[in-house]
Structures are given as structure tokens and as C-alpha cells.
Amino acid sequence: MQNELENTIAEFQDRIIADRNLDTRTKDIPGWGMDADPENDPTYPMKHWNGADHERLNYEKAPQQPIDMEVLHSVERPGITRVFGNSTPPSGLSGAVRRYAYQFSEATATHWMTLILADRINVIEGKLSDLTHGILPNPWIERGWRAEWKHNRPAFISKAATTALLITAGLLLLKKKNKRK
């Protein structure tokens, strides 16, 4: 990815180029700005346009929250935001997969689908971590089966019976296949 244009373009030039154009180039463009209408803003009233967009990133910022943990950040921004959430830093195999995902922009499927993959790996890591810490997951509570039993018993029983039946049928089928071999 090294030689692609997005990796070689000079950064933070947008306002410099825009100001230069406003100073010189736009004068020579017939009709420039004559139909500009500040009220033609489809985002109103959600956005109260005041021109701050053209400051780009040159606004007054809060002090930086100390970066005392690993914080992944989108490649579409120049760095970490002044504050960030400190919940669950990346770790283990899922963390490695997340680090890979964050090399790609938010416009790519690679970024998001890799994060979904990392999430699924993280679930397995969570179960392994539970077991190593002597915690036995309690699906009755944690999966809300207790609530289903209380409020939706017939459907819950029928779903559980169907699942049990399918698992038994699958196991029997496997056993039969193994016997044939």
C-alpha cells in the first residue's frame, strides 16, 4: 500500500489550497458564487451553519487524555481523540485481528468484516477466560432462558425440544456413518 496516492499526498493542505483558490483562481471562473444561498442547507435545523467546518481541525481542543492503554484509531483521522473510552483494550488473538482491521479505512469491507471476525474470536476467548478463572457460564440466566420460561413457556419448551431433537438426530446420523466405516 506504500506507493498509493493516499499514502503520498501531502496532508493538511485543504485550507491552503482553498484559500489560494479564493484569492486568485475563483475570480477567473465565470459565475463563481453568484447562486450561493446560505439557506440552501438540507441539514437545517439539525445543523446551525456558522462556517466552523472550514476551520477543519484547527479548533480549540481539550487536553489529551493520557494514553495509558492501547487505543486503536481509524486511519481516517490523524490520531487519537482528546478523550476516549477505556473499556476493554484489545488483547489476545482477537486484539491482533482488530489491529489488522484498523489498518483499513471505514469504507472497506475488510475493516468491518475483520472486526466482526475479531468479535467472534473474542467470544471464544471470553469463554476460555471464564473457565481458567473457574467461572462456569450460566446460560439459564445469562441467555435469558429464565425469562423465556417465565413469560413464554410453551414456545420455549417447543424450541428447546426441537433443538434437542435436531442434536440427537445429528448425533445418531454421525454414529451410523462411523459404524459404516
Partner: peptide, 20 residues
């Protein structure tokens, strides 16, 4: 204080989400 917050787009703050 970012341009989005200053224009009342508080749901689109530029200084609160490093990940996206």
C-alpha cells in the same frame, strides 16, 4: 468545541471517538 459541536451536531463530535 469541534466544528460539529459548535454547529450543534453533538451526535457527530470529532473528539470523542478514535475508532470511527
Amino acid at each position: 468545541s469541534c466544528p460539529h459541536c459548535k454547529q450543534e451536531l453533538y451526535g457527530n463530535c470529532n473528539e470523542s471517538n478514535p475508532q470511527a
